[in-house]
């Protein structure tokens, strides 16, 4: 075969380096997702509650996150923190802060809608069977909430993974940055490297996200109440 440039993937440890880069992106996504799950749960419970002021504050927070592009938030934290707090936070930290901030809002909204979708008679039946509040939540409300929540939470994970690709724009050395380094290093002996490297990164992202979104669809069908 004529020089197609595909050998760039097999030279040295190039492919392994790409995978390592991908792992950096995935780690960012997983850490942010973990924070978002915990904080989002709290926020969802707060939003489903009846306190007007708390509800309003959460609403404003949610709208801010919904309206501002994640990249703008990244810039705000990355450049803003350096200037005002006088600390030079790393790109990774900025990314985790912003993606958790974003994920918490999304997760909070999911938890809220799962909670309010539990019909009132479930509570009433629980109480009339003599369950305590703790027992009611432990055995009746939370299991149903989880079932409703799981597919959309899994879906949020794929969105989180896709969103973490933005981290390269504030200087995090992840899969795209590694790809660029490989392309630059082989600029002369392999001018077509860019096609294969970016093509591979595209496929890698797909290989990660596709099974997760399929899982979300399957769960949705299986757990339908």
């Amino acid at each position: 075969m004529q020089d197609s440039g595909i050998q760039v993937l097999f030279q040295g440890i190039n492919f392994v380096r790409l995978l390592e880069g991908l792992w950096v992106s995935l780690k960012l996504a997983l850490v942010s997702m973990a924070f978002s799950m915990v904080l989002g749960f709290l926020m969802g419970i707060l939003m489903a509650g009846r306190n007007r002021i708390v509800g309003f504050v959460c609403r404003v927070y949610l709208e801010i996150v919904r309206i501002m592009p994640q990249l703008v938030l990244l810039f705000l934290v990355y450049f803003g923190a350096a200037k005002h707090l006088g600390i030079d936070i790393s790109g990774e930290l900025a990314a985790v802060i912003v993606f958790s901030f974003w994920g918490t809002a999304e997760m909070g909204d999911l938890v809220r809608s799962a909670l309010i979708s539990i019909p009132k008679h479930q509570y009433e039946s629980g109480y009339s069977l003599g369950l305590s509040r703790m027992q009611l939540y432990r055995h009746i409300i939370l299991p149903q909430t989880f079932r409703r929540l799981l597919p959309s939470a899994v879906n949020l994970l794929t969105r989180m993974i896709k969103t973490t690709s933005l981290a390269v724009l504030i200087g995090v050395v992840e899969v795209v940055k590694v790809g660029k380094q490989i392309i630059d290093a082989s600029r002369y002996e392999n001018p077509k490297a860019a096609l294969w490297i970016y093509g591979t990164i595209f496929i890698l992202y797909f290989a990660v996200c596709f099974p997760i979104s399929k899982l979300s669809t399957v769960l949705e069908k299986k757990l339908q109440v």
Binding site: S165, L166, C209
Partner: peptide
């Protein structure tokens, strides 16, 4: 299942 940024690159 792929980010816009990667599609653009």
């Amino acid at each position: 299942n792929t980010p816009l940024l990667i599609q653009l690159f």
